[in-house]
Each structure stands twice: as C-alpha cells, then as structure tokens.
Design a protein around this nucleic acid. Structure first.
Lengths: 347, 347
DNA sequence: CTGAAAGCGCTTACAG
DNA sequence: CTGAAAGCGCTTACAG
C-alpha cells in the first residue's frame, strides 16, 4: 500500500455553496437564495440549507459575490502616518461609522516617503474612498471620478473635486480665532509654525491667521515664522530654532496639534514656562490635547463629527452616485485650556 | 428628437480586459498574458496591448483575478482602539512591511464594545491574518486554521494556536526586569496597575513582576494594586484611587505605556512629583514614552521589529502554508529614562 | 505566439 | 417554490 497523505496534513479549504447544496439536497442557486433571505424559498428548504451551511462552516466567498453584485462593501480610507494622533482620532470614528453601515475599512497610507499608488484605489475592490490627506493639486479625485468610484474628501479640499463630496472645518476662520485671541491677550511678538502650503489645511489656517492679525493691526514678524510638515518634529525643531535668536516671540500659533505637542515638549526641554513665558496654541483638538500634562489650548473641529459626516456622505453617495457634490463645513471653536496667557511684562 | 441622457451624466465605468482587447485587436486572454508578463507574447503584441490599456486607463479587476488565482494580496490586521498609541506603533510598520511584500492591509478592530465578527476573516478575501489582540481563550486562531487561512499572532499568545506562528516579547522576563529595578532602587512600598488577566500580555507581565518580587523577598501589597483594561483611563483612575489612601506606594509598575501615560497625567494633576515622590514604569516603549515631557522609563520590546517579524512570518506562511508553527520571542530591555528614582527617605 | 474553451464562486433573470 | 442557464472579469491549461 503506497503512502497516502493524511487528511489533516492537507490544507483545510473553505466550503462552497455547491457543497452546501449537495449536503442539503438542493441546487446551488437555492443555497444562495436561502442564505440571502430572498423571497420565494420554502421555510423547510431554508431550514435545511441553514443547517447544512452551519455544519460546513460555510461563509460565502466575497470575491464571487462582489463580481456579480458589483458591491464589495469595502471602503478605502487614505491617511498619512498613524503616528500622528490626528489620524487615529479621525480614522477610528470613521471606521466605526462605516462598519455600522455595513462597510469594511481598507487602510491606505500616503506618505512623503511612499506616495499612494492610485491604481490600488481603482481595481474595483472598493465601493468608495475617503481621502483625508492630499495636496491641493492632487489628481486622485479626478481619477476616482473618471473611473466612477464614489469618494469624499475629509479635512482636505483639492482644486478639482468633480463629483465628490467634502467635509472640512472652516480652517480660515479657525486661524482667525487664534489671531484674535493673541491680540486680545495683548501679545505683540507673535510667531507661528505653519504647515505645508500645498495642503488646504496648511494654506487656510495660515491665511486666516495672517489676515486677522493684519486686520487687527498686529504684525507677524518674518523671523518668528517656521514652516514644515504637520508633525511633532516640526513643532519640536521649530521651537528650538525660534528660541536660538535673542529676540523671542511670546505667542506661537501651531498649525496643528501634532506640531503644538512637539512645541510643548521642546519648551519643556528648554525650560520655557508655558503659558507664563510662552503661549502655544494648536489646531484640531485631538484627544491628547486634553491630557492634563499638555492642557493645550487649541481650535476644536469636532474630529469625531467630521469623520462620521464624511463616512455618511460616502455611504449616501455609494447608494446614489448621481448625487450632486456636497460640501459640509464644520464651524471651529476655540478650546481655551491652559497653554495661553497674556505676555509677561517686559523690562 | 427625444431627450437622450448626456454622456457625462452617466456614471463612468471601469474598462475591462475585453475592451482593451478590442482596442488592441487581440483576444481577451492575450491582454491578460501581455499585462502579466507571461512568457510567449510577441513584443509587438505586448506593446499594442499596453498602449490600449493605457489609453483606456485599464486597471485589472481584483475580484475577477483573485477568484481564479485564489490570491487577494490582502492581509487582515486585527487591532484594538487605534487611540491607544500601542496600535499605531505596531500597525504602521506592519502595514509598511506588508506593502513592500505586495500585500494590502485591511484593518479590523476588536473592541470590548464591538467584538470582532470572525466571519469577516473567513470570506475568502484575505490571504492571511495578523492578530494583535485576543483573549487567551479566543477561538479565532482555531477557526482560521480550520478554514485554511494563514495567520500570525503578534504580541499575544492564545491557548490553542494550531498551524499558526507567533511573535511575542518575553513579557514574563520584562515584568521581572521592572521588579528587579524597583528593589535595586530600594523601594519597599511597591504597587502596580495590572492589565487584563485574560490576555497573555496582562498575565505574563504580572506574573513575571510578582515572581521576581517574591524571589527578592519584597512584598507586593494588596492595597497597592489596581487592575483594568490596557488604557490611559485605567492608569489615570488607578493613580487617583491609590493616592486616596493615607498609605501610599513609592513605585508603581504599569502593565503598558498607555496605562503609564494615564498615571503620569494623574500624578501631574495630584501634584505628585515624578520621579522624586513616585516612580512610574511602563511597558512597550511606544514612541510617546520618549517625549521629554513624559520621559518614561519602560520596558522596550522593539515594537517595530515585532511588527516586521510578524508581517514576514505571515508572508512566508502564505507562500508555504505547510510550514510548521514558529514562535519568535523578542528579548525585552529596560529603557531607563527619567520616571524612576530611589524612594525619598521617609520620616 | 495566439485564440477558443473552461472555470473560479457567486447572484439573478428565466422557465417550469 | 425550485432548478438550469447565463454571466460578472479574470487566468490558465489546451489546441493550433
């Protein structure tokens, strides 16, 4: 007798609807109908099919199903480094909302080091896409539209967004709120650590801040300015750089909370008292901003709400791709915590 | 003349290989062969096909392809709340490694509020699964094995892991390292905020800590103990609770960094000086632990390395499902930063 | 080197 | 109410 491979050495394989059908003594399409609650299946048949499916541990193959239904129940979410607390704060409620709506989240990252490969979004495996990161000149929305993939921009706008929705905070207004508070507190030596100018958030927060400051007649000095990516490191090195000069600002606007957290840490290292010696204000109000150790004054944009709205916009658009483009703007609010104060009286 | 819908009002549709074939003047299978670098396609034909594909913006439909190849190039990663800094630190390098290997990451969350639905992992849409969260008694590995889905456990062990790999830190040893340091520093009033006992990390870190302490003859007092989920809140409330009593510990072991960060924040609020009045030590060495403001002494487990190894184990197993189960254990190291010191001399 | 055929696992008209 | 047929978009033997 020749050796036969033992059964348990074979890789287990998934049962198909055909095998369920054989076990239940029905045809394969009947299995499909019974399991999908289709009308016109006798209770007895459905019962037998359910039992057979149960016995075989049957789970319908999503590939086969989506090929014919043209629905994958998967949504792509494009984010940047998850290490930036902004993204978990946004992706998590998005993921939750999508799941409740019956969609799974496929995470794509779009970093400076490894840019997003658009083809990954176009292979028919996604019912829609949420983009939370993209440069103003990105062609991704255009490509998605061309291929008929519903999409929504969250926290970003792009020059050309044909046939897609967006959900953003009024970043221009938010920047202005910070400027107004700085002036109200009596600051005159005002600096900023701005974000990238090729993103809508970077650009709008900056111009809102600048415009309001100039409106109020307070200058923003050139040598109190730093610019960099939306990251902890930008804030950290920004402070180090600004405080190497002899002339130093008393208030700094950070274009997002990641930058502000880096700034707070640098201030800690340099022995700069916040807020007594230096006011630091961020933008986004990520959960960490509320931690007592940071107690960061920041501009809140209801990230959870923004994520939920974004997810809902997308699910609606998936249901009805003909919807006209919609734009939801979230009103930012100043969250006054403990990292701001009037400037110290100077000698 | 009746109204005809305008073309640009029709939803754009993805081009198929058949349309590429027609445009290139070849048969549909030839398109497949040309685009997949299959041998035996003339250079001229390949060229024509590539041009036609380009012109139509053709991207092969992944559903159709994976149905026949039985490869989806997708890997499921099961994580808990991304708000816990541990998960981004783990998921990000995993995602990167998988992408380099040609796999996309599908993120699944498994929270206490909404537990993972195993069926989502079994519908044939995943080439493999990485599990970073699961209770000791979880049946997920067993189910995956039964359905022939390759899987790897990262940072977790489970009682029964047939046919899967795991990559974990030596949590027992790590717990012991902390105990030894506490004793070496001269602490006698030692407390801990432990994690869940139904997880391997919670259990092993606890028993390693306890065993080493008892080995060294230093008691771990019952009323210096708190237990809870691996979260910021557990640490925060743990400290608040421990410092309500008149008798207080001088050193506290936190079962992970999220707990330790919560503890540091509570100490800040209560005006407890760290490390002068209280030593706090964490576990994991997430990036934030190194931030100057926290400067957390912790047990490092090379999260990036663990993630990368986990991803590689899985990709190897996908290639060869017959591989015998492998276990990679990562040696933990004490990362001595600034949140520990000898106890203050007590009156 | 290329085309005609078969089939992956489903769902959905179409008959009966 | 249920089965036989067709087909979603691909890849892969099989002929030629």
């Amino acid at each position: 007798v020749p050796n036969r491979p033992r059964l348990n050495h074979r890789a287990a394989v998934a049962a198909t609807s055909r095998e369920v059908a054989r076990l239940a003594g029905v045809s394969q399409p009947t299995v499909s109908r019974a399991l999908n609650q289709s009308p016109g299946v006798s209770a007895a048949t459905r019962q037998r099919v359910l039992e057979a499916a149960q016995a075989l541990g049957y789970v319908p193959n999503e590939g086969g199903r989506s090929l014919v239904t043209r629905r994958s129940h998967r949504v792509g979410v494009v984010a940047a480094q998850l290490g930036n607390p902004f993204y978990p704060a946004l992706v998590e409620p998005m993921h939750r909302t999508l799941r409740v709506g019956g969609y799974r989240t496929i995470l794509f990252t779009d970093g400076d080091d490894s840019p997003l490969d658009i083809e990954n979004l176009l292979d028919g495996s996604l019912d829609g896409v949420i983009i939370t990161t993209s440069q103003l000149t990105s062609r991704v929305p255009f490509e998605l539209h061309q291929r008929g993939v519903p999409y929504v921009l969250v926290n970003r706008t792009v020059e050309e967004t044909p046939g897609g929705d967006s959900c953003v905070a009024d970043n221009y207004l938010g920047g202005g709120l910070v400027a107004a508070m700085f002036v109200e507190l009596g600051h005159t030596r005002i600096g900023a650590i701005f974000g990238p100018q090729n993103t809508s958030t970077g650009r709008d927060r900056e111009s809102g801040f600048r415009d309001e400051l100039s409106e109020l007649g307070v200058p923003l000095r050139r040598h109190f300015l730093v610019r960099g990516p939306f990251s902890y490191e930008t804030g950290y090195h920004g402070i180090v750089q600004l405080f190497q000069a002899e002339n130093m600002p008393t208030a700094i606007f950070c274009a997002n909370d990641a930058i502000a957290l880096g700034a707070l840490n640098a201030a800690h290292v340099l022995g700069i008292q916040v807020p007594q010696e230096l006011t630091i204000v961020g933008f986004d109000d990520v959960p960490m901003a509320g931690w007592p150790i940071f107690n960061l004054t920041t501009v809140g944009t209801d990230l959870t709400g923004m994520a939920e709205v974004g997810a809902k916009l997308l699910m609606e658009r998936i249901k009805d791709p003909q919807l006209l483009p919609r734009l939801v703007v979230i009103e930012p609010t100043l969250v006054r915590r403990g990292s701001h104060s009037p400037p110290k009286i100077q000698g």
